[in-house]
Design a protein around this nucleic acid. Structure first.
Lengths: 243, 243
DNA sequence: CGGGCGCTTGATAGGCCTCAACGTAAGTGG
DNA sequence: CCACTTACGTTGAGGCCTATCAAGCGCCCG
């Protein structure tokens, strides 16, 4: 049932109860389904022409590069997530987006979205909600980098991804398939890849979690949650549905 | 002229050209002017009852506390900024807000705002824009903590605050009055207060900037910008105004 | 005058980075 | 089919950056 909905309708439907008319309205916002290949950026930092997407299949990373060549990954995007939502109303995009795997996306007509606000205010509220959820994840990422040591940071990161994937049905407390390299994780956590490797070993030796062969396997989920001080409240998408 | 407008109208007016009718609509969104005292939180992490505010006078800090007692300051808020905008649509607030000085705020009726979306879609767009601007600042903060060493991090921080204050007319390339303690800055930058102190000395000895007696004074603004790799593009509020 | 707060500085320790080397697996081209 | 290359993961050695602990100073205010 839900699977027949577009990714956009599924995303926003988590927040507002959508009527048939609203579903029809959402359909008009879609352009076409598109495919991008791993490593070829869809959005470039500094570009002024924007399109927003909803990720239907695969993983992507939003990131910012510094003048000195370093880069910071802001967030990994998994199926169901928006790509480029924040840039919709900003004059130039403040970040780039790179597919980690080959991905499929639904393109969204930005000006159509803004026009649709005129017809239906619930839609506007739903977009603001989606933006707020994205920001909550960013904020927790900030806390993670600012205040946790490397091992806890990594543990928290693996737990967050697991929780987010569980929300869209492709992960559980047992684990999940994860296409990220240790280099990507390092760029996300503000660490070196070497140290990510050491921390992974540490978590493995503690009997908490393993990450090998593209699979994250939680060995002792409860103890890992405690170790990382992971509180998933910020991922709570069960917002009170609007009338 | 601008000073006669409410803080809310001034904020949103930076993005959309507001008609008289829209100004009138905004007036209805205001509840009363309120005062909060330094150190007494207005918003508590985990609370479910939200109010949003626009900061009219003074400084505040939004922050998150960890179980182990550490805290990460997410952002300092200066006059003209929203307080609690992200929490408006989330079931529980994911952060706390503490006035750094005594502050004056305009309270905003959240449900009134959502109702107003129904009457006027430009307003909805303007709120989404404001949320996007806030998030852009958060993202740059993330990059700052994740990828810059302490001195550059501090330099970038001081420059950002200067740029933001300049936008609301209470700062310049010469400097600005700053009520923050070194402890607050440390909590924002993921550093210890001791190390913030050392880095301030370093920046002073380099002849770049001083911070004493509640005053940040840029000595060589251009060189500081280069040192910190500060690119203010993410603060660009000159978005194309909507028709 | 005493006490608290914020700032400053020194000494020490340790977490994480950098550099470097090596193993494995997969892909490429002859 | 094999030599070569590339990407990713793993491990060790050494050193820098930043935290922690500690002490002292100036200032404001009760």
């Amino acid at each position: 049932m839900l699977n027949e909905l577009s990714p956009l309708a599924r995303k926003l439907g988590a927040f507002v109860a959508l009527s048939d008319a609203e579903h029809a309205l959402l359909m008009r916002l879609h352009r076409r389904r598109k495919v991008f290949f791993a490593g070829r950026d869809l959005v470039h930092q500094g570009q002024s022409e924007h399109t927003a997407y909803v990720l239907a299949k695969g993983w992507a990373a939003s990131y910012k590069v510094l003048e000195d060549g370093g880069r910071q990954i802001l967030n990994f995007k998994v199926p169901g997530d928006f790509l480029g939502l924040r840039s919709v109303l900003l004059r130039i995009s403040d970040h780039s987006i790179e597919p980690v795997t080959d991905i499929e996306v639904s393109e969204i007509g930005v000006s159509d979205v803004l026009d649709a606000f005129n017809e239906n205010h619930k839609l506007a509220t739903a977009f603001l909600w989606a933006a707020s959820c994205d920001e909550a994840i960013m904020v927790e990422h900030l806390v993670n980098i600012g205040r946790r040591d490397a091992a806890k940071r990594l543990a928290h990161f693996l737990l967050e991804l697991g929780a987010r994937l569980s929300l869209v049905g492709i992960g559980s407390k047992a684990g999940y398939d994860c296409p990220l390299t240790q280099y990507l994780i390092a760029d996300a956590l503000g660490l070196s890849a070497v140290h990510v490797n050491r921390c992974l070993r540490q978590l493995r030796e503690y009997g908490l979690v393993t990450f090998t062969g593209g699979r994250v396997a939680f060995i002792d989920h409860a103890r890992l949650v405690e170790f990382a001080q992971f509180d998933p409240a910020y991922l709570d998408h069960s917002a009170p549905k609007l009338r």
